Amino acid sequence: MALSSSSSKGWLSNLPSKASRIYFFLIVLQIPLFRVPCRSGMCTTPLQVTSSQLIASEIFPVTLVKGLLYPGAIVNGLVKNLTVPRWDDILNIYNLTSVKEAPAVADLQRLEVLAGSYFSVAGALLGVLKPGRMSMFGTLLVIWGLVKEGILGKPANTDPTRAVYVYPTMLIALICAFSSVKYDVKKVVRSAPARPIAKPLQSSSKSKLK
Rank of each mutant, 00 (worst) to 15 (best):
Q48M: 12
N92Q: 13
K66V: 02
P131F: 05
S203Y: 05
T158K: 14
L64G: 07
I93N: 03
I172P: 02
D159R: 07
N76T: 06
R110T: 03
K206L: 14
L129E: 01
L111R: 07
N95P: 04
S207I: 10
K66A: 10
K66F: 04
S98H: 13
L152D: 11
Y70C: 06
F178V: 10
G150F: 06
P131V: 08
E58Y: 06
F119K: 00
W87C: 05
L126Y: 06
G145V: 04
Y23F: 14
I175Y: 11
R21Y: 12
R190V: 11
A56G: 05
V99N: 01
A177G: 01
V36H: 07
Y165D: 08
L141G: 15
L111V: 14
E101A: 15
G127W: 03
S20N: 04
K18Y: 09
L126T: 13
S51H: 04
K18T: 06
M170P: 04
S8C: 10
D184E: 10
G72Y: 08
T63S: 11
V49W: 01
L114R: 00
V99G: 02
L111E: 01
P37I: 01
Y167C: 06
L91E: 09
I197C: 07
V147W: 12
L3I: 13
R21W: 11
D107N: 15
S207N: 11
I74E: 04
C43A: 12
R133K: 14
G10E: 12
Q53Y: 11
A115V: 15
V166P: 02
L82K: 15
L82W: 15
A122T: 08
D184P: 00
N14G: 09
R110I: 00
V36C: 09
P160M: 02
I151K: 09
P61I: 05
R195G: 05
I55Y: 04
K130I: 14
Q109V: 00
Q30Y: 02
K210T: 08
I55S: 03
E149D: 05
S98V: 07
R133N: 09
